[in-house]
Amino acid sequence: MGRKKKSRAIVEEFNTYFGAGTLQDWQRLCRDVGINGDLPSITQCRKALRTVHINIHDLVDAVKQGRQPQRFPNVRQLIEYTISTRKFYPRHKIQEMGPVKALMRRIL
């Protein structure tokens, strides 16, 4: 699969997984990446997600398999992993206030 097709596929898969963007969608995302606890608002979910370092491709794959994605202890290790595996999420597809924005880290 070419890079453009992979990029398009990951965007579609994540959007399908995430849903409409309700509070319940945000809370599910937090649970799926291993954030537990009471998160009563989208803002609280977004803040919690800023502390999690995961690869979005791995998140989508992990959810399909019913497991949690690999979490990296810091941004540097996530960057090294992302570059070595070439599992990039297309920056031009990031919505300003969406969940991908909360998960994105500057790689290059």
Results as ranks from 00 to 15, higher is better:
residue 57 H to I: 02
residue 42 I to V: 15
residue 9 A to L: 10
residue 31 R to Q: 10
residue 26 W to Y: 10
residue 65 Q to P: 05
residue 57 H to M: 01
residue 32 D to W: 01
residue 47 K to L: 14
residue 61 D to S: 12
residue 1 M to N: 09
residue 37 G to E: 00
residue 91 R to M: 13
residue 56 I to A: 06
residue 20 A to H: 11
residue 7 S to Y: 06
residue 36 N to G: 10
residue 55 N to T: 00
residue 40 P to N: 14
residue 22 T to L: 11
residue 62 A to T: 02
residue 41 S to D: 13
residue 65 Q to L: 13
residue 86 R to C: 08
residue 72 F to Q: 00
residue 37 G to F: 00
residue 58 D to L: 06
residue 10 I to H: 03
residue 73 P to E: 11
residue 24 Q to F: 02
residue 61 D to Y: 09
residue 21 G to D: 03
residue 6 K to H: 06
residue 93 K to E: 12
residue 104 M to L: 11
residue 104 M to K: 11
residue 9 A to I: 02
residue 70 Q to P: 05
residue 6 K to N: 10
residue 45 C to P: 07
residue 38 D to P: 09
residue 83 I to S: 07
residue 75 V to N: 07
residue 56 I to H: 04
residue 75 V to D: 08
residue 3 R to A: 14
residue 72 F to V: 01
residue 15 N to Y: 01
residue 92 H to Y: 13
residue 13 E to W: 03
residue 69 P to Q: 07
residue 87 K to Q: 12
residue 26 W to K: 02
residue 51 T to A: 10
residue 38 D to M: 09
residue 98 G to S: 12
residue 14 F to V: 08
residue 7 S to F: 06
residue 55 N to H: 00
residue 5 K to P: 00
residue 78 L to R: 10
residue 46 R to T: 04
residue 62 A to G: 05
residue 18 F to R: 09
residue 23 L to H: 13
residue 108 L to A: 13
residue 75 V to Y: 00
residue 54 I to L: 04
residue 97 M to N: 15
residue 13 E to Q: 12
residue 2 G to S: 15
residue 26 W to E: 09
residue 52 V to D: 01
residue 54 I to F: 01
residue 46 R to K: 15
residue 94 I to N: 06
residue 29 L to H: 01
residue 41 S to P: 06
residue 19 G to Q: 01
residue 79 I to A: 06
residue 24 Q to T: 09
residue 104 M to Y: 09
residue 78 L to D: 00
residue 63 V to E: 00
residue 2 G to H: 11
residue 78 L to C: 04
residue 74 N to R: 08
residue 48 A to W: 08
residue 106 R to Q: 14
residue 11 V to Y: 05
residue 73 P to D: 11
residue 50 R to L: 04
residue 40 P to H: 10
residue 46 R to S: 13
residue 45 C to V: 08
residue 73 P to H: 09
residue 101 K to D: 11
residue 55 N to F: 00
residue 106 R to N: 14
residue 18 F to A: 05
residue 73 P to W: 04
residue 22 T to S: 15
residue 62 A to M: 03
residue 49 L to E: 02
residue 8 R to E: 14
residue 32 D to P: 02
residue 30 C to Q: 02
residue 106 R to G: 14
residue 3 R to H: 13
residue 32 D to F: 02
residue 57 H to E: 05
residue 103 L to I: 03
residue 74 N to Q: 05
residue 53 H to I: 04
residue 43 T to I: 12
